[in-house]
Every structure is written in structure tokens, then in C-alpha cells.
Design a protein around this nucleic acid. Sequence first.
DNA 1: TTGTGATTCGAACGAACGTTCGACTCAGGA
DNA 2: TCCTGAGTCGAACGTTCGTTCGAATCACAA
Lengths: 224, 224
Amino acid sequence: MPRAATSDSRMVSRKLEMILRHSAHVFAEKGYEGASIRDISRASGVSLSGLYYYVESKQKLLYLIQIHTFRTILSRLQHDLRSISDPAARLRILVHNHLEYFLRHPMEMKVLAREDDVLAGGYRKEVAEIKRRYYGTALEIFEHLRRSGQTRRLNPRIAVLSLFGMMNWIHTWHRPWVDPQAEVLSDVMSQMFLHGVMNGHQAESQKPSRAARGALKVAARAVG
Amino acid sequence: MPRAATSDSRMVSRKLEMILRHSAHVFAEKGYEGASIRDISRASGVSLSGLYYYVESKQKLLYLIQIHTFRTILSRLQHDLRSISDPAARLRILVHNHLEYFLRHPMEMKVLAREDDVLAGGYRKEVAEIKRRYYGTALEIFEHLRRSGQTRRLNPRIAVLSLFGMMNWIHTWHRPWVDPQAEVLSDVMSQMFLHGVMNGHQAESQKPSRAARGALKVAARAVG
DNA sequence: TTGTGATTCGAACGAACGTTCGACTCAGGA
DNA sequence: TCCTGAGTCGAACGTTCGTTCGAATCACAA
């Protein structure tokens, strides 16, 4: 029973993950309101009523997708930031982490970006809270950049939200087979943002990330 | 009859405009799929069936909002660009025009930004076409900037779409009573983009727009 | 073999959806 | 005065929605 229970609960959570994956795809394609539970049933191969054994409502489905995505991306960011102290480098890590996850999980991120004000009540508050923490991390990084005297006078809120705008808008236009991948894209956007925000002296000192160096010929080709 | 006809048709188009205005508000608040014709009926004060005297379907409602918004913003841009030839100045005009219209018609712009892939068939094609022309104008401006040798090596598609990302993301965070208005906002974003994209020498030569100069104290306060 | 709890699903619920229809009002021309 | 057509709407259409329920199936301990 104990052994069976763990294997069972592992099975259950595996199946739940699979349902969430298909749900994210359906939500991304049709939007939360435009997607029906029947669409999700069809996509996941689980019967209509069978879905309710794993998730108690359509809202909870969206909540689980959003909270899981946010938690993952935030914890990865905190991990990657652990060993870095230079503000500009930290900023580049934030952008790279965001875009890397974005392009590896485009459906989940599209759902995150689009269905911002669908949730209600406690679900809404929980997602808003973790989103606030993610935004706060970005704001902190920018403030460090500012305090180290490297930026022009700028409203930090606007600067940071503009950066998120650049990044999140990607879900409307990025096509994996014609557009650059995360490494190049995050280098380009980091540099655009840092150049755009700095006072012009340190701007030249940045170097491409280790991972991106190999992709530079691709970038050069893309530059046309 | 002819006089009466014009007065009538003026009345009709006035009422249609009023319906579209309320529809945009409802779509912005609940999303296209989440909004019902009954919501629009309630908001506009026109009976459920009465709406169908003016518009033949819910899709057409969305189409009319989107096509009208795009046409207006594009024609205003072309008008404002007419007398300007300097590429950087043209870029600033594009940003100012976009944000000015954005903040003056937030509901319509939210609908434009969010409900991108809802329309089908001919409606979809028409909206896509005018959107392509708007994007093309921005791309042209950037190419001029590039050819005048002022920008770093950059994928133009990514640069321009990042700019649109910065601008369009505003609908998720801008609060009229706490955030800067269009003049300040467009100056900030223009400068961020131009600094971010230029090779660093001409970057200092830009000046705030006439309209924004008066708002600079507000900006300075906002910079905190 | 029997019993039990976890898992699955067909069928149905009431509510809400977009759209249609026929009747009504009413101002203006004949 | 009667007629016409634009404008308006209550009531209903058939469909789809999210969710529920009870029965069936399954693996496995007793």
C-alpha cells in the first residue's frame, strides 16, 4: 500500500502534468474563454468527466498552469542570479532566463501573457503575488544598475515594464524557424535595453554570453 | 427624402459609433470570447435583437473596431510624418503617435493588442493587411535610420518588434493617474529605443518634443 | 473469490450563448 | 386618412457551455 501509494500518486501527478500541458496548448490556441473543456478533453484524450477527477474546475486548470509557470521561472532566475553580483550581468541573466523559458514553453508563456485578468478570488491573488515578486526582482536589479551610477535619469517602473513589454510581446511574432533562438534574442534585447538605459560609457564593455558566442554567425546572417 | 436620408444615415452612423464604443469597452474588459452580445446590449442600452439591425454578427463588431482603429492610427501617422525627413525624428513621431492614440483610446487599443487571432476569413485578412502596412512603415523608418549609419548592427525585424512590444505592453500596466501621459512616455521610450539602437555618438543630440517640455518636472518627479 | 478504493466515462443537467423572427411603433409622403 | 419603411424589441430557436452523477472497470489486499 505505501509503495503502491507513492507509485500511484506519481502516476496521478504525471497524468495531471499531461493534462496541464494539453490545456496550455488549447488555451494558447483559442484563449481561455474561447477554449472549452471539451476541447481539452479531445486534446488530452481524457474523457470530459474524467478531467474533473484531476482538476475541480476550468479556472483551476488556468491557475495551475500560471502558478506553475511563474514558480518555475522565478526559481530558475533566483538560482542563476545566485553567483552574480554585477548589475548589468544580472540584468542579462534576467533577460536570458525569461526568453529561454519563453521559447522553450511558448504555449504556457502565451497563456501567462494573455490571460492576465481572467482568474478571480484566491487564485487571482496568488498569481498576482508571485508575479509581483518576479517584477520586484527585476526592479531591484535595475535599481542596482542605477545606484552604480551607470544609467541615465529614468523612471525605473517605466524602464522595467518596457523591458518586459519587449520580451513578452514575442509571443505575438516569434516563429522558431525564421527568428533567432533564445541565446541570440536575449543578447540582442539585453544590449538594446542596456544601451538604451545607460549613460553611454560602459555600454561597449558588455560581451556576448558564453552560450551565444557560437550563435553569432547566425546573428550576423540575421542582421542582413 | 435626400435631406432626410442624409440626416437619417448620419443618425444611424452616430448610433453605430456609439455601439462600437461600448463594444470596445466590453471587449476590453472581458475579452472577445468572454463578452456576450447581451453584455454589449446592456452596456449600450440597445436591445439584444436591436443590435443586429446595425451589425450583422459579433465578429463584425470586432472587425469594425479593429479596422477603424488601425485606419485612424495609420492615417494620423502618415499625416504627421509628411513634413519630417530626419530618421530619428520620424521614429520619435511614430512612437508619439502610437502612444498618444493608445492612451486616448485605451479600450480600443487593448482590443487591438489582445484579440489578434480571433477574426477569420476576409475580416482577418483585411485587418492583417493594414497591420502589415503599419508595421512596414515602422520598418522603413528604421531602415532609413540604419542606412544613415547611425545604428549598430541589428536585426531590423527584432528591433522594430521590440519597440512595438514596449509600446503595446502598456495596456497591461498603465494607470492614467499614477503613470506619465503620452508626451513623457513617448519621449522616454523614443530615447530608450534610440539610445539602445544607435552607436552612441548622436544619441545625446535629441531634444524633448515641444509638448513634453512642460511635462518635464512631472517626469523628474516620476524619476524619483 | 470477494471486497475496496482509485480511476474512468456516458449521459445528462440547467444555464448561457449567438442569432432569428415577427410584431410593434412612428414619422413623413401620397 | 392610409401606407410605407426605418427602427426597435420580446420571445424564442438550436447549440454549446461547465459541471455533476452514478455506473462501470481495474488492480490488489484479504
